[in-house]
Every structure is written in structure tokens, then in C-alpha cells.
Write a protein that binds this DNA or RNA. Structure first.
Length: 481
RNA sequence: GGCGGCAUAGCCAAGCGGUAAGGCAGAGGACUGCAAAUCCUUUAUCCCCCGGUUCGAAUCCGGGUGCCGCCUCCA
């Protein structure tokens, strides 16, 4: 069984065969840095983060490139509004981007090119297209001539007649054809500009990705990813200008993620119905969001709400409880027994295998998560009641947990210690010390069979958001979900 | 108008021709002083509707209905 991926180019699932065996060259469209990231950006990036993690775990040497669009109309507009340089806007939001995305545990790409650092490459590419007559110059603007590229529409499944009939393409008199798009825009007064053979100007949106992807990955590379909304026109145009220039296939597999919806409607800046990542991270741990995203297939739309977040939180807690037990075993001095064998482990090993099958099927994280829960159930049967007193059992449990751990890593889940996950949330009424004091008092009450007092203390803590759990090994506590 | 996608239990969500994963919520049981956690059992005779293909369809085909996305900046 091999890995298969859904390729937007061709609109079907295909076996994944990189150009060079064992090596994957991958480009993902990053963000335009003019504002804070919202959870739609988070969804897209978590999706590709998981894809990279899985490819690497599967043994591929992945070169992961993700750009920053740091020059664009929206950045300029914001800079003008605030009376600062557009560079300053870009720097500010790149910083914010890293703050948010690092918290999400997103892998840093191997290369993070910025448009403004690639002006020479962009000019070279545009120049190549002008020289070969595939692009034309009007008043310092450079436009790509779509009619000259026969494959136009192959990614998005559109044809040029339909596009024209759609009549939603704004008519610019200077363009030879309404579908033509700008490779280079002459700068207006007060706008940032770079010198070019056609006068001072700045790059159009689509060409930066082509220039940067081809510079860092070659003229043909394996995977190009982004949100579904980029299929047309952005990615269609990237193909046109890149293949128009090189005559070679551009990206071989196009992967697009579905949207985050609010009340069944696309969340977006223009609709105004968006939540920034940091707003959401103020409410829930980053892992909750990751779990939420992983619980649907990356191509499906996913509906964001407080309810769905709460459900994700509940499911994730079940996972963290397993980790909590593994930590308890380690704390008790147990070490994973070498090879997990025996009847009790076969459901675990089977679940791990079926996890890979699910991921092989177009990165089906929802199904993969199902297999993780199967494994969790199997592993929970092996939990020692008192790890300190049952080191052998604890060692077996750890051996089982070691089978699961790589699965969590692929999804980027369970990155923090369970103790922190359950106990390190701020803003609670009681300190850890105060909680432990009450647990001690309750222990004494239980020892003298004063259950009324013991229950009183437990209820008191419960009212303050602290949950007690008795076991043979003692009483543990956690903040209520 | 053109193109594409989706409709599965109370909720979320897999499934891609062989007789409905998983999670949350619910019910019963075990464990517990009682809880919590955990384990066991249980919860869709049926997958929007109507036809068709097939020994067999949630899965394929045709026709409906509803919702969504792209065609304009957008993950």
C-alpha cells in the first residue's frame, strides 16, 4: 500500500510518486503580512504541518518552503493609513505570525522566502516572459497574456470562454484581454518601488510564488499547497506564467485545504466573520485547535464554534489522560520493557498500522484519529493501578505508550507534559499549594472514615474548578475541562 | 450563468461495491466509602428523496431537493 494524495490538477486521488525517490520538494503559499492570522490560516498551516510531519516520518527527505507576501496592496494601504513604511507593517505581522504559529507547534519550514528579497528573480522571470512575447508592457505595467497559454484553466477546471462569460472580471482598458494579469505594476507616487526595465514598480501577486518556488525547488517540484480559494486565479496564474516561461511542468501535485466556516459560511476577512488565532488561543490550548482540525479531513469544510471546540477539548483530554498515566509510570521509576509482545499488545500494533493506512489515504487524519482512540482503549486496559508497586506492569504500559507516541507526533498532539495540560492553566482561584493542602486534609478525613468531611472538601474544590481523582496510588487533581 | 464540493445516529466525523470506524453526549454493569478516571456492554435494519446498474450500493449511473465554495482580495 502506497501513499496516495488528492491532486487538484486532475481532480482525483493519485499514487504519490515524487520526482526523485525519497525526496519531496514542497511549496506552500504563506500569508500576506498585513494583519493578524485568523483560524483559517491556522487550519491551512496545521494541515500542511501534518502532511510534512507524516512524509518525514515515512522516511521522505522533505524540503518545505513557505513564503511571506510582504509587499501588496493591502500592506501598502495599511502602511499609508498608519503613516509608516510598508516594511514596518510586514515586519510587525511576521513577528506576530511567528508568535502565534510557534504556539501552535507548527514546524518552521526549511526556507521562508519573502517577496521583497526576490525582486531580481521576479524581474528575470517577467523579463523572460516579455522577451518571448508571452507578456506585454503597457505604461510600465507588465501583463501576462493568458491567450498565449493553451493550458489555461487546467487546474481550476475552467475554460477561458466561461470565465469571460462570467463577466465578473473587471475590465481594464489597458489589458489586451480581461483575463490577463499583472506580473509587474508600475508604482504610483508614495508607493514602495523597485527599479525595473519597465520603470519603477513592484511585483504582482502571482509571480512572487513562481519566482520563489522555482528558485528554491527547481522549475519542476513535487507539491504545491494552499487554501482552496487560491486555486483560481492565484495557482492557475502561477502555472500559466511558470510553464509559459520554462515549458516544463510546474508543480506535480496540487493540494488544497478546505475552509473554516462560521455558521456554515466561509470565514474571511472580507466577510468580517473571523476570529484571530490569538483570540482563540486565549480560550483554549493550541492542542485543542490541532485536535479540532485533525478530526476532519483537510479537504472538508469545518465548522468552528464554541461547541465544536468543547468537543475537541473533551476528546483531547482523553488522549492527555493516557499521557498522564505514562508520566506517572515514569515518575514511579518504571522503564519501558523492550519489545511489547503478547495478545494484549496486538490491538495496539494493529492500530498503529491502520493509522498509517489512514494517513496513506490522502492524509486522512480523521480516520487516523479513530485508530489512535482504538489504541488508547487497548492501552488503558494495561494501566497499572499503582505504578510504584507494579513496576513490571508499568514497564509494559510504557512499552505500549511508546507504540502510540509516534502517532501523536505525526499529528503534532500531546506536545506538553500532561501535568501542564491539566494543571498549568492560569487564572484559577486556588494555588497549587492551597489545593494540595485541601487534598491532605481530605486524606486525613478519609483515613478516619469521616466521609462527610471528605466529600465536603471535594465539593468545595469542585466548585472552584478543581477535580479530584482517587486511585490506589493516591489522589491527583486537575482543573475541570 | 459557468465550474466544483457536500448531505451518514442527539452532536462531531470516517467510509470510495461486500453488508455502518472513532470521538462527544446518553443508558446499564464492573471498580470506588461515594465520586472522578478506566474497563465491559449498549445507542443508525440503515446512510436527503426517487429511479437504475449489480448476486450485492451509504458507496456506481440518471433525475430531484437542500446547503456550501470558486469565477473579485482571501488559507
Amino acid at each position: 500500500m502506497g501513499l496516495s494524495v488528492f491532486n487538484t490538477l486532475g481532480n482525483r486521488k493519485e499514487p504519490f510518486l515524487p520526482m526523485e525517490p525519497g525526496k519531496v520538494r514542497m511549496y506552500v503559499c504563506g500569508v500576506t503580512v498585513y494583519d493578524l492570522c485568523h483560524i483559517g490560516h491556522a487550519r491551512a498551516n496545521v494541515a500542511f504541518d501534518i502532511i510534512v510531519r507524516y512524509l518525514r516520518q515515512r522516511g521522505f527527505d522533505v524540503t518545505y518552503v513557505r513564503n511571506f507576501t510582504d509587499i501588496d496592496d493591502k500592506i501598502i494601504r495599511r502602511a499609508n493609513r498608519e503613516g509608516v513604511a510598508s516594511r514596518e507593517i510586514a515586519e510587525r505581522y511576521i513577528r506576530a505570525f511567528y508568535e502565534d504559529f510557534d504556539r501552535m507547534g507548527l514546524l518552521r519550514p526549511d526556507i521562508e522566502p519573502r517577496a521583497t528579497d526576490h525582486i531580481p528573480e521576479i524581474l528575470r522571470l517577467a523579463g523572460r516572459l516579455v522577451e518571448t512575447g508571452k507578456a506585454y508592457v503597457v505604461d510600465g505595467d507588465v501583463y501576462y497574456s493568458v491567450k498565449g497559454f493553451p493550458g489555461y484553466g487546467k487546474l481550476s477546471g475552467k475554460n477561458t470562454e466561461d470565465l469571460l462569460a462570467g463577466a465578473r472580471v473587471d475590465v481594464d482598458e489597458r489589458k489586451k484581454d480581461p483575463l490577463d494579469f499583472a506580473l509587474w505594476k508600475a508604482s504610483k507616487p508614495g508607493e514602495p518601488a523597485w527599479d525595473s526595465p519597465w520603470g519603477p514598480g513592484r511585483p504582482g501577486w502571482h509571480i512572487e510564488c513562481s519566482a520563489m518556488a522555482m528558485k528554491h525547488l527547481g522549475e519542476t517540484f513535487d507539491i504545491h499547497g494552499g487554501g482552496k480559494d487560491l486555486v483560481f486565479p492565484h495557482h492557475e496564474n502561477e502555472i500559466a506564467q511558470s510553464e509559459g516561461a520554462t515549458g516544463k511542468p510546474y508543480a506535480r501535485y496540487w493540494i488544497h485545504n478546505g475552509f473554516v466556516n462560521i455558521d456554515n459560511e466561509k470565514m474571511s476577512k472580507s466577510l468580517g466573520n473571523f476570529f484571530t488565532l490569538r483570540e482563540v488561543l486565549a480560550k483554549v490550548k493550541p492542542d485543542v485547535l490541532r485536535f479540532f482540525f485533525a478530526s476532519s479531513h483537510y479537504r472538508s469544510p469545518i465548522d468552528y464554534s464554541d461547541t465544536s471546540l468543547a468537543e475537541a477539548k473533551a476528546g483531547l483530554s482523553r488522549l492527555y489522560r493516557v499521557k498522564e498515566k505514562a508520566e506517572a509510570c515514569e515518575a514511579a521509576g518504571a522503564r519501558a520493557s523492550s519489545v511489547p509482545e503478547g495478545e494484549a499488545f496486538s490491538p495496539l500494533r494493529e492500530a498503529a498500522e491502520r493509522f498509517d493506512e489512514a494517513m496513506d489515504d490522502d492524509f486522512n487524519t480523521a480516520a487516523a484519529l479513530g485508530r489512535i482512540f482504538d489504541a488508547v482503549r487497548a492501552l488503558n486496559r494495561l494501566v497499572p493501578a499503582n505504578p510504584a508497586a507494579e513496576t513490571e506492569k508499568a514497564g509494559r504500559f510504557l512499552a505500549g505508550y511508546a507504540v502510540l507516541r509516534p502517532l501523536f507526533d505525526v499529528l503534532g498532539l500531546l506536545r506538553e507534559p500532561a501535568k501542564d495540560y491539566f494543571q498549568a492553566e492560569g487564572g484559577h482561584a486556588l494555588t497549587e499549594e492551597e489545593i494540595l493542602l485541601r487534598i491532605e486534609a481530605r486524606r486525613d478525613a478519609r483515613a478516619r472514615k469521616d466521609f462527610a468531611e471528605a466529600d465536603r472538601i471535594r465539593k468545595e474544590l469542585d466548585a472552584l474548578g478543581v477535580l479530584l481523582e482517587d486511585s490506589k496510588a493516591g489522589t491527583s487533581w486537575k482543573y475541570k475541562a
